[in-house]
Design a protein around this nucleic acid. Structure first.
Lengths: 221, 221
DNA sequence: AATCAATCTTGACATAGTCAAGAATACGGT
DNA sequence: ACCGTATTCTTGACTATGTCAAGATTGATT
């Protein structure tokens, strides 16, 4: 039976947009739709612009429907961030695996790509590294399973850069990885939030950071 | 007339805690009380644990009372962060002005103090550098007037460290300041949020960061 | 004492997250 | 084709919260 002739109270006939994709009681693939719509909303209006109710509305379902696909809002956010980490890692891997370029070039790109990712996806980046999904006990196992390999991969790259002499080989790889990630993360955050680093300055700041790590060679204990 | 014999509906006699400090219609110094209580709540329960209603309750006033002292929640948060920046700068200044120690020692302390501040005041730090108060148009002029000098001061210190040969003098001071702040900020954030850096590792990470900047000397363009 | 501005209160509204109970539908087995 | 069950979705309700408007209370100033 079509939705439009069901016994629903007239006037609440659903959301105008949507009758294209859906007309039946069951949505089809609500989970995917929610993820997609949520990602769009976040990109446009930020995390605080996303509410499950508006999201449900946009998908043409009732407010409680999303709860059959995500335990709560937090899990939805985790799932979105999860995809962000995967996307980020694809980018990093693609860059590092390009054998046509020197290690130095790849290191430069790695650094710039990181900051550029944050610049181009500020809201997603804020979500991925924001406290909302990481604060105690709120990150899902899936999220951690997507975020941790990112770090592992970076550590693997840095180890190779150390071994090939591009980066200081005397320094503990884990520590160096943490400092480099910290530097990139800090620069990205400051820029995104508009504190102390203006977007127009990224290029220069990034270059400076690259120089710092490349020239960090002699380890005088 | 005492509050307790006023015509208020019995049973809503206010919040139990508080009759010590207040009994009259007017609070006395509500603004200060709100700031203090809010700071405490944030320290204990984080920013998301703070609601204006609970805050009003705790101060023994009605929910709308705070609005006569702060335009809205955002302005309250900005005021708290503002004090955080002042506190932070007092710390930095005190460290740098200690002439009994070498520049190297002061630089080390500067770095460690930064991260320690974040470690000891995680919630305040999150507020100070969180997007909630910095996202477009939400930072107050007062907040900016407290946060900007912090950066200026750090830049002044770095300039001196460059001139005395502790840090690379060939590098643009602004850029170097941005990179160092970025590094500290990133490390602090990652640690606080529990991503990639465990609190037990701070010491080592911090040492590594210090080494990186101290050994960054020869600027090979 | 009268008046004004500051301060505080109640009532109300809108948004939001979430859950319980029940309705509609799909689906696999007979 | 039929039926029971699992899945998916809906309505109604509850709680928490930020915020405002209108009015009450009070201290201060004339």
């Amino acid at each position: 039976m079509s939705r439009l002739i069901s016994q629903k109270p007239i006037g609440k006939v659903r959301n105008m947009k949507k009758q294209i994709t859906k007309d039946s009681y069951h949505h089809g693939d609500l989970r995917k739709t929610l993820l997609q719509d949520a990602t769009d909303i976040i990109r446009e209006s930020g995390i605080e612009g996303l509410s499950l109710r508006k999201l449900a509305d946009r998908a043409g379902v009732s407010r409680a429907a999303p709860y059959h696909h995500f335990k709560n809002k937090n899990e939805l956010l985790c799932a979105i961030a999860e995809e962000g980490f995967r996307q980020k890692q694809r980018q990093a891997r693609k860059n590092f695996d390009d054998n046509t370029r020197s290690m130095q070039e790849r290191f430069n790109s790695f650094m710039k790509d990181y900051v550029n990712f944050a610049f181009e996806n500020p809201e997603l980046y804020e979500l991925m590294f924001g406290r909302s999904i990481w604060k105690q006990q709120s990150s899902t196992k899936e999220l951690r399973n997507a975020a941790y390999p990112c770090f592992q991969h970076q550590m693997a790259m840095i180890k190779i850069w150390q071994e090939t002499g591009l980066l200081n080989d005397n320094e503990n790889t884990l520590r160096l990885t943490q400092v480099i990630w910290g530097t990139l993360h800090g620069i990205a955050k400051l820029m995104i939030d508009g504190i102390y680093i203006d977007p127009t300055q990224i290029e220069g700041v990034c270059d400076c950071a690259i120089k710092v790590f490349i020239n960090f060679k002699s380890t005088q204990e």
